[in-house]
Simulated scan of single mutants.
Amino acid sequence: MDERILVVDDEESLVEFVCRALRQRGYKTLSAYDGDAALSMICDERPDLVILDLMLPMMDGWEVCRRAKGDAGLKDIPILMLTARSSPEDAVQGLDLGADDYMRKPFPLEELIARVRALLRRASGKGESARTIEDGELKIDTEEKEVRFRGAALDLSPTEYSILELLAGRIGHIVSREELLRRIWGVSSCDTRTVDVHLSRLRKKLDDGKTPKLSVQTLRGRGSRLVWEEGER
């Protein structure tokens, strides 16, 4: 495979460990140990994916992500954030800046690899058929990965888009959390806040204050579904 992955962390032993595991699976790797070097490498090398630690010298991971995602030529490069802190606010801040996924340290290596595969697959569009999903005022072009809602384009991250496409393909029907994890993240289990944060962000982007409301509902112990809701807000 030709995909190049940039691994950024100030722990050189961790960088080498992750890079070695990725190379063993056929990926090409790049490495950086501070934020300034990471951003320069993203701009110069245009890797296919970035694994980015938050706590970095020179420039922290949040700022690296903000600058990369704010550049039209770089914003489509998937970023998987790593954090050693347990606060959910770290994840929310990273996702708000455009990160596509996050994991907490220490992490299972195979889960990291699975998430890398899922992000690369979504970025390349491999395995997806060219078709259109339409329901009411929602239209999804799955070839171009574009979403229009009530005639306006929705600005979604790759992960938000993938969740919406999956739910919209079965609108009104429940998709289990296990299937979301398997289809979107490529794993059978992970920190449930990862799913919750993305569902919450997607829910807010679909809420335009009009009726009927297109709602992402979460049913405890069952999963999530996309439904049209009539009536007063």
Rank of each mutant, 00 (worst) to 15 (best):
T192G: 09
M103W: 00
G221K: 02
S215V: 15
G172T: 08
L202M: 07
Q217I: 11
G169N: 04
R122P: 00
A123V: 03
V197T: 09
E144C: 07
T211V: 10
L180K: 06
R148K: 14
S124D: 05
G186I: 01
L164A: 08
R182W: 05
R177F: 15
I133Q: 10
A130N: 10
P106D: 04
M103H: 00
S129N: 07
C190V: 10
L167N: 07
L206R: 08
T192Q: 13
F107D: 03
E110A: 12
D208L: 10
D196C: 02
S176T: 15
L109C: 08
L154K: 04
R182K: 15
K105Y: 07
D101N: 12
S129Q: 13
L219V: 15
T142N: 06
G136N: 13
S157A: 11
R183S: 14
A118H: 08
F149G: 06
S124W: 01
K210D: 00
E137V: 08
E144G: 11
P158N: 09
D141Y: 08
E178H: 13
A118I: 01
C190W: 09
L112P: 06
D207T: 05
G209Y: 00
L138W: 07
L120E: 05
S124A: 14
V187F: 03
R121C: 01
V147S: 09
K145H: 14
R121A: 11
L199W: 02
V116A: 09
E111F: 04
I140G: 07
T211R: 14
I113N: 02
S129D: 13
E137A: 13
R122I: 05
G172W: 04
L166C: 11
T194Y: 00
V147L: 07
L120M: 08
D191K: 03
W185Q: 03
S162K: 07
R117H: 14
I140K: 09
E111P: 04
L199G: 06
T192C: 07
L214S: 06
T132E: 15
I174Y: 11
K205Y: 03
D191Y: 02
A130F: 04
I133D: 10
D141F: 10
Y161M: 01
V195M: 10
R131E: 14
W185A: 09
R131Q: 13
L166N: 03
V197F: 13
E179W: 09
M103A: 00
D191N: 15
F107C: 01
I184K: 03
K139S: 14
A123P: 00
F149W: 11
T211F: 02
I171L: 12
G125E: 03
R193P: 01
A114E: 11
G209P: 05
P108H: 11
R220L: 10
S157E: 09
L219D: 05
T159V: 13
Y161Q: 02
